[in-house]
Each structure stands twice: as structure tokens, then as C-alpha cells.
């Protein structure tokens, strides 16, 4: 990390502290509270913060369904994020290099991100409903076999990924486009003088220069993708069986329909810890990958 030393500690603190304190002030209570709750036996018939020690934690480590859902999430968020990254980068490259009525397309491509996920999920459901949905309606019109969108594991996973990619690729697009717009022009001029092909320029110049911003975008997207909820809730209800259940859904059910507050808190803390470890590792990998080429 290369930073400038402007000697004055006063300014140094005055810049960071207001924001940091504001955030901590809002978040500290819920966080400590959640830790405290995870050590209590708060459930539907017993509201309150008694002390049961590590009981919930022990139970969580033996909850096979929860850990299954963790594994599933790894695959889910990996695939959706990679897909979104590749597509988002392509979109950004296309929009960057100027297209006719650029503005219209840029805004059009941003629209999916602006829709409320929970409501869009219902629209997706009306598309992938097997009997009255648009997808099978089109398949039928084309004389193709209808597909079991929500009751077989592969199509079900596919519909969720489609919904997620549709909704969140614009996120990648916007960040990467902003990144591209802020790149200095010189390296490209140099590449042009060398007579490098567009393909080569991309791999030698554009991509490496975009590495730091890509890493950030991917990490943020992974965080958001791991909270995937609405599309699962609306499209498959975690089915068939529990084949599309992810931790956020699992925890939601413990909270919302079962009101196992203490157990839910424990599960989400475990999830938080795992997420921090995994994301730190990923962050390290990215930092190492983008270093040799950087400044």
C-alpha cells in the first residue's frame, strides 16, 4: 500500500474518524448483541438473554444441512460472480469503445440493477412457472419439450443463476466501466505505436491495469452474492428437496418461520467468520496476482 505522508495527524484523524465512528456507532450494538444472543437460549417460547454457553455453537457444528448449504453457496457464488464478471467486463469494453447512442444502452443496461430483487423474483417466477410461464410457453410455440424449471435440480439452479446474472451483472458493468474511463491514455498510445492487436492490447494493457478494481468488484460481488435470497425464495423455495438451499435462506428460515433467534444468530456468526476468512484469502490471492504488473 503506497500512501502519501502528509504529516499532520490532526487532518489524518479528522478525515477518517467521523465516518468510522458513525459506522461503528450504528453497527456495534447489533454485532455485540448478536454475539450475546448466540450464547443464550432465545427461541419462540422463551424470549430473553439467559446464558447457555456454547450450546448453540456445538449444535451448529453438527448441523449437516447448514454445512451442506455452505458448500452449495461456494459453488453458487463462484459461478454467478465469474459469469457476472466476464459479462460485465464485456459490456464495459463494448460501452467504453463507443457505440451508437451509447447513453441509451448504458442506462438500459443499468436498469436490471434498479429493480427490487424481491419483486423481480416474482416476475421471474411468472416466467419460469412450468404450466403458465413464458419460458415454457415459448418452448411450446417452438414445438420443443417443456422444461421442469423449478422441480429438477439443474434447471432450478439454472433459473436462479439467470435471475442473479440478470440482476447483478450491471453492478460489474458500472464499476468496470467507471474503472475503464479513469484509465490513463498513455499506455494505450504506446501499444498503438507498437502496433499491438486489439486482443494483445487487452491482455497486456487493459486487463492488468484493471486488476485492482476487478479484484475489489469481485470481492464486493461475492459478498452480495452470498446473501442470495429472493430468487431462491420465489423461484424454488430451496427445492427440489433442499437442493438449492443456501445459508442465508437457511438462516432466514430459522429466524422467520421458526423464530430460533439464538440458533440463527450463531449460524450467522459462523457464516460471518467463514466469509471473512474466505474473502481475506481471496483478497490476498488477488493482491498477489495484481502486484508484479502494478506500480
Amino acid at each position: 500500500m503506497q500512501t502519501y505522508k502528509l504529516t499532520n495527524t490532526y487532518y489524518k484523524r479528522a478525515f477518517l474518524l467521523p465516518g468510522l465512528i458513525l459506522l461503528v456507532a450504528i453497527i456495534i450494538f447489533p454485532l455485540l448483541f448478536t454475539i450475546r444472543v448466540s450464547l443464550a437460549g432465545w427461541n419462540v417460547s422463551h424470549a430473553g438473554l439467559d446464558f447457555v454457553g456454547g450450546h448453540n455453537w456445538a449444535r451448529a457444528f453438527h448441523d449437516r444441512l447448514f454445512w451442506d448449504s455452505m458448500n452449495r453457496l461456494l459453488i453458487f457464488s463462484f459461478f454467478t460472480t465469474i459469469l457476472q464478471y466476464v459479462l460485465g467486463f464485456t459490456m464495459a469494453m463494448v460501452a467504453w469503445r463507443g457505440i451508437a447512442s451509447r447513453r441509451f444502452f448504458r442506462v438500459l443496461w443499468l436498469i436490471p440493477m434498479m429493480t427490487t430483487p424481491s419483486v423481480m423474483a416474482i416476475v421471474w417466477r411468472s416466467i419460469f412457472r412450468e404450466d403458465i410461464g413464458a419460458a415454457n410457453g415459448i418452448f411450446h410455440g417452438l414445438g420443443l419439450h417443456p422444461i421442469a424449471w423449478s422441480t429438477e435440480i439443474f434447471p432450478a439452479t439454472f433459473t436462479i443463476i439467470i435471475a442473479e446474472v440478470w440482476q447483478w451483472t450491471p453492478f460489474m458493468f458500472l464499476i468496470l466501466l467507471a474503472g475503464l474511463l479513469s484509465l490513463p491514455k498513455e499506455p494505450f498510445l504506446a501499444a498503438e505505436i507498437d502496433g499491438a492487436s486489439a486482443w494483445k492490447t487487452f491482455w497486456r494493457v487493459t486487463f492488468p491495469m484493471m486488476a485492482p478494481i476487478s479484484a475489489g468488484a469481485i470481492v464486493i460481488r461475492l459478498i452480495e452474492a452470498s446473501k442470495i435470497f429472493d430468487s431462491i425464495f420465489s423461484l424454488t423455495s430451496a427445492g427440489p428437496g433442499n437442493a438449492t438451499e443456501t445459508p442465508s435462506y437457511f438462516v432466514w428460515k430459522r429466524y422467520f418461520t421458526e423464530f430460533q433467534i439464538s440458533y440463527g444468530a450463531t449460524l450467522s456468526l459462523i457464516y460471518l467468520i467463514v466469509a471473512i476468512i474466505v474473502l481475506t484469502i481471496i483478497g490476498q490471492i488477488f493482491a498477489r496476482l495484481s502486484k508484479p504488473k502494478g506500480d
Binding site: M1, L20, V219, Y255, A275
Partner: peptide, 26 residues
């Protein structure tokens, strides 16, 4: 610095459903 930045970002990891009860009390 990178750790502080990560601290900021990590505030988004918690599933909102879990925070809803402490925020309610808050």
C-alpha cells in the same frame, strides 16, 4: 489501511435478517 477498508466492506456480510432484531431493539 487495507484492513480498515475491509472492515468497512465486511459490514455488508451479515445477512440482514439477523440484524433485524437488534436493530428493532435499537
Amino acid at each position: 489501511n487495507p484492513d480498515i477498508i475491509f472492515f468497512f466492506v465486511s459490514q455488508r456480510i451479515m445477512p440482514p435478517v439477523v440484524l433485524s432484531i437488534p436493530f428493532f431493539l435499537f
